[in-house]
Write a protein that binds this DNA or RNA. Structure first.
Lengths: 349, 349
DNA sequence: GGCACGAATGATAGCGCTAACACACCTGAT
DNA sequence: ATCAGGTGTGTTAGCGCTATCATTCGTGCC
């Protein structure tokens, strides 16, 4: 402390009690700062007696290491970035929660950035912003075609994994098997005896929506059934409602599969308003198994996804990468969804 | 790495993962690092011509400032911490989203920490962890009695605001007027002609749940009505369902107010199963106005809260504090909720 | 008893950035 | 010409921590 007449305004400038730094601990414990650092980072390399003395000093002074300084010195931050999109939707929100939970058990912090619009540009920018914050890795919850496209360039040198409906490719992905879930839903309706199944898809540029739509179509085709025209909703109950109003007048419709539960809610509302009974007149299957699904009127048959598990897997993939695992080609973990049959589906007629 | 030649990045956007630092930019622009710093932080102090030259160099090299170094030098991080709890619930999730949205417009980043259990100890620990990450301030979404208690000590020297149902006190609070919302809901039912109103409350240690319960009780008392026994749920549809099964057998029950929409969904399900009609036999009011509320069967009368607005206000309060506004003044911003009458409520009998 | 050898600790030098001051260089008034 | 006062830029010295090497000490060995 030579020129302490002029102190740049550091964190907690002025107040003596405010900032306890490593040197303070070192002095109190009668060791060098380096030893304090070692005690905190690789305790095994310090003699037991010394270590205890240092830890006592840490406790007595209430010392907390300054992470910015640590980052600067090591290049590692202990923080992961998560890029999300519309985190009020049940899926993304659950995903975020799952990741945060999983991260907590590993001593990693989580910084989020959500996007207003999912353009490739935006995603690139978000990743870059996170890079500026020295995150050790990034998880992208952006099950969106344009956003995942060409992500590889963006991530140069920074471990990145995607989560959700990812098509995979260059970056590792943890996801639910959307195709299997949607196929099961469609087959369930056919097995009940419905001649064919209508589908309200999610936005066409969402990967998950695409996979569900494809599975629905393939399943109908494989069974030799007619494939009704697809309609694209926007995940909202309102879009389900509008679709429902359109379908309600068509007596040939006996089964509908919507790409998420919220749209199913809107759909069912419209059908009810039109006097159609569920499942008496029309069967409905959703996707997600939101907490309310079991308690709707009628309780909704749907496809359950374990978001928490996907979050954990995504984290695991990311840690592999951070740990310097070979940038293995096409690494991915797929979680199987589960068809949950409740009372919104039944035999036709 | 200091003496390295700066790879003249190819024509395209930098694929160069080699870290570009300020000195590189300075060299390329033919100025000192300090000038680069100035261009980035207070552009007005640099001559226009120089500034443009520097910005060109920044672009050409794809330079991104290292935030850790900046934090270390300035003591400010440009990152806010958010302490959350069970971010899958609609309220907290919306809150988080609102805050993140608002923060994005101010160039602040957001780091979240969610808690498994809301004890005072945990909250203190979370705040401390965030402090270690040099956040400039903290927003606590923890509408929970024990967690807010004694938060003042924890936050010594660090700006902290609470959001949600906060009772206020030492730390500033942005919140929805829970009391007014619940009072309006209860009064609505009385105005329709119901003799009294039953209530399914939220967990007793949530501040919001307490305020809603109190308003319900006060409103009944003020109207000279009998106050039925309170039952405490856990916000889940299941707890609403169980309450509903209990109430279904009692023909004297004609109106119920549940502390959130999810519980209302469960409640309605149980009543339907018991053959009670809504609102014919029993009227139901929820709280939150989740997106599905308008499309349930029947569409749910509920109390809408503008979480986005609360998030923005919380951020505003926090920025006031960070900007060095005079401390504790029992500062708070209250947002008025809105009763949204739909079809789950009607006249009794 | 002198030597090599490992374990424990200390000294030094940055990580990349910015606050504060120092130093040009330019005006315009004297 | 001379000086005050500005403007634009460079220089220096850290922010708090850790990597690296240097140093000290104890130990075993021939």
């Amino acid at each position: 402390m030579s020129g302490d007449l002029v102190r740049p305004a550091g964190p907690g400038s002025g107040r003596g009690s405010g900032t306890v730094v490593m040197a303070d601990v070192a002095k109190l414990a009668g060791v060098s700062p380096m030893t304090v650092s070692r005690v905190l980072n690789s305790p095994a390399r310090v003699r037991r007696e010394t270590r205890l003395r240092v830890l006592d000093a840490v406790r007595e002074l209430g010392y907390r290491p300054n992470s910015a300084a640590r980052v600067l010195a090591t290049g590692r931050s202990g923080v992961l970035g998560v890029v999300g999109f519309d985190t009020t939707l049940y899926g993304p929100a659950s995903m975020l929660f799952g990741i945060e939970q999983a991260a907590r058990e590993t001593e990693y912090g989580v910084t989020i950035t959500s996007l207003a619009a999912l353009t490739q540009r935006n995603v690139a920018e978000a990743v870059d912003r996170l890079r500026g914050q020295s995150v050790d890795g990034v998880i992208i919850i952006a099950p969106h075609v344009p956003s995942v496209d060409g992500l590889a360039d963006v991530s140069a040198g920074l471990p990145v994994v995607a989560v959700g409906g990812g098509d995979g490719g260059v970056i590792p992905v943890a996801a639910v098997d959307q195709y299997a879930g949607a196929a099961a839903a469609t087959r369930h309706l056919l097995d009940l005896g419905h001649r064919t199944v209508w589908h309200l898809a999610g936005p066409s540029d969402w990967l998950e929506a695409g996979a569900r739509r494809q599975a629905w179509e393939d399943t109908l085709r494989a069974a030799g059934r007619e494939v009704p025209p697809v309609v694209f909703g926007d995940w909202s109950p309102r879009s389900g409602y509008e679709f429902g109003k359109r379908l309600a007048g068509d007596p040939s419709v006996t089964a509908v599969f919507t790409a998420n539960d919220q749209m199913a809610v809107g759909l069912i509302r419209a059908l009810h308003e039109a006097g159609r009974r569920i499942p008496g007149d029309i069967s409905v299957v959703g996707f997600d198994d939101v907490p309310e699904a079991a308690y709707l009127s009628p309780p909704l048959t749907t496809v359950g996804q374990d978001f928490g598990q996907v979050g954990r897997h995504a984290l695991q993939l990311l840690l592999e990468r951070i740990g310097g695992a070979p940038a293995e080609e096409d690494r991915r973990i797929i979680v199987e969804p589960e068809l949950i049959v409740r009372q919104s589906t039944g035999r036709p007629g």
